[in-house]
């Protein structure tokens, strides 16, 4: 059955964990930095991890539990496949719930994408056709996820390298409709907007302007690369393997001007650099967040 009405959560179930994620800059924690974070306790406001990396037991889970005592933590999923026509994988949702209950994170997020069909996991965040049918499927799955986890989910806008001919809804409208119909929040990945805008000829500022500010619960920043194709054409690839590009910092400033200060994450997944590089990128985001806070204070005073 298609859920036309968002589930209404009582205020208590919308709580952001025992340790809410602040409107400050955080970094994505990957295995190479586990021990350094435990040992040196770097000055960073919060940390985000991939939910799928903590679905087993053993040392990595214990390490995250130790880190969780000292930092607010956000769980970012990559495997729920909210856009699968086959339906949500109940076993995977149960595993996500297990990690959420164990870690009690400040934020829980997933992607506007799909990865599984006919029992095959395609190991990527694949683009959806922007159709009414896909919108119904995604909203149904966001409803199911929020009901299962008993908390609000943030859904991230995708980066993509192709569009489908039969799409009828602009992606930014699709994002806003999912938030409106399910009550979920939006994880606004500014790098993804820039990458997709370049790849598809969209106006990145117009994309930002179409998102409802009240739904934005988190921002992602990351690096991307440029792939040269035959015939001199290029595609921007969202590979999270470098520093945030100047154009993305500029778009981030626009996002903060529109949304106000929002928890902002530096993501880096390929060729993960020393912790200091991530801290340096987070410091730059922190500077922009402080500026946004001053702007907001000035606006209120005026």
């Amino acid at each position: 059955m298609i859920a036309d009405w968002p589930l209404i959560f009582p205020a208590a179930s919308l709580r952001s964990g025992r340790s809410p994620v602040p409107a400050k800059a955080g970094i994505g924690l990957r295995f190479p930095h586990h021990q350094a974070v435990v040992d040196t306790h770097p000055e960073v406001a919060w940390l985000e991890v991939h939910t799928e990396n903590y679905m087993g037991g053993g040392t990595s889970l214990r390490c995250l539990e130790t880190i969780r005592k000292d930092y607010p933590v956000s769980l970012h999923g990559v495997g729920l496949s909210l856009g699968s026509a086959d339906g949500l994988d109940a076993a995977h949702l149960a595993r996500v719930k297990g990690v959420v209950e164990r870690i009690d994170p400040g934020l829980v997020s997933e992607h506007l994408s799909w990865s599984i069909v006919g029992g095959t996991y395609l190991a990527d965040l694949l683009p959806l056709p922007m159709t009414e049918e896909a919108l119904d499927v995604v909203c149904r799955h966001v409803d199911q996820t929020q009901a299962c986890l008993k908390r609000r989910l943030l859904v991230e806008n995708p980066s993509s390298y192709l569009r489908f001919r039969h799409s009828t809804i602009p992606e930014w409208e699709f994002m806003a409709l999912v938030a409106k119909r399910t009550g979920c929040g939006i994880l606004c990945d500014v790098n993804n907007i820039y990458v997709s805008a370049c790849n598809h000829g969209w106006d990145a500022s117009a994309y930002l302007a179409a998102l409802p500010p009240s739904a934005i619960g988190e921002i992602h920043l990351a690096g991307h690369s440029v792939k040269q194709l035959d015939g001199g054409r290029t595609l921007r690839i969202d590979d999270h393997g470098s520093r945030v590009a100047p154009e993305v910092w500029a778009l981030y400033a626009e996002a903060l001007a529109r949304f106000g200060p929002v928890p902002t994450l530096i993501e880096w997944d390929t060729d993960v650099p020393p912790l200091e590089v991530l801290m340096d990128q987070a410091a730059r985001a922190e500077g922009a967040l402080k500026e946004a806070q001053r702007e907001r204070a000035r606006a209120i005073a005026a």
């Binding site: 390298y161 192709l162 569009r163």
Partner: peptide, 18 residues
């Protein structure tokens, strides 16, 4: 391939990324 908007790039080249 037939479902993908070409936009100056072969659908196969776009699908190659995935």
């Amino acid at each position: 391939g037939g479902c993908v908007v070409a936009g100056g790039i072969e659908p196969a080249a776009r699908l190659d990324i995935y």
